[in-house]
Every structure is written in C-alpha cells, then in structure tokens.
Amino acid sequence: MVMRSRNQAMFDYPIRTAELAVLEIISASGSSIVQVGDRSEIDAKLRALAVQRQASHAEAGEVYFESYSVFDRPVPAIIEPVDEQTTVHVTTRNLQPRICVGCVEVIAVSSSSLILIGNGMNTRCESRVKHIRQYAGSKPTPPLGC
C-alpha cells in the first residue's frame, strides 16, 4: 500500500503536453480557431444569415438579424450544483507526461469551431445560423407543411 502511493507520486504529472507530428488543414473560416499551444479562455461566436435568392440585395432589400428570433433567444441554462450532494469533485492523475498523435488531417473548420493542439481551460463556442431561400416563381406556393 505504501509502495503504491509512492508510485503514484512518481508518475503523477500535473500537466500533460500534446505532441503532434503533422497537422494538415485546408480551410478554416467563420470565427474558427486553429491553435497549437495552451489556452485559458475561448469565447467564439458566429451569427450568420445565409440568404440565397434570385435578386440582388439592392433590388430585393436588406436582411436584418433583428428580424429573426434565433439570434436573440437565450442559450439553455447550465444547471449549477447547489449543495455538497450534487457537487462533483474531480481529481485527475496523469501517468504519462504527454499525449502523442502522429498526424491530423482536417479538410474544413468553420462556424466558430476549434482545433486546439494543447490544453484548454474554459471554452465557450456559439453559432447561430438562419437559412432563407427566396426563389422567383410565377405563382406563390404556400410553405411546406401548411
């Protein structure tokens, strides 16, 4: 029992290092992050109105974030622990000082996404996307489901 606790102390590394040989990324867009190294705070946000229509915006008018509720509705609340019974105490022990990865290949990173080679502390990402397709037609059709 004593031996075991001594071994635990010997192999306990407080912080692990990430080792990566090759990182291949073709595209990173739309409030996304590619980082090699540690980071404490991340707060990435993206709001997008994706309008596809058969007329220019000068002709068919502008679009506004304020018109659509998806951009101002609150995010779901995270239920915080209220007392000792519901609080979870996490203790972590690392037997190896590093995480080793040979090769990472990613085609695209987008919409407030994140590639992080290293340690992070607090990460918060939020993306809100609204799609609108407006086609010219001879007679108006009601939306599907009506």
């Binding site: 990430a18 990435a44 919409s111 994140l114 590639i115 607090n122 918060r124 993306s127």
Partner: peptide, 24 residues
C-alpha cells in the same frame, strides 16, 4: 472531413467546455 457549428477537435486536457449551436 469537417469540424463545424461550434464543434471542437482537441488534443489535450480541458476543464470546462460549453458549445451552443442553433441552426434554423
């Protein structure tokens, strides 16, 4: 292939992650 809409690909340790995505 892709990491999109508030997703994370991480090699390393972390403490707290909150990811929100709304797609309308």
């Amino acid at each position: 292939l892709g990491v999109a809409s508030s997703s994370i690909l991480q090699i390393g340790d972390t403490q707290c992650i909150s990811l929100y995505s709304m797609f309308d």
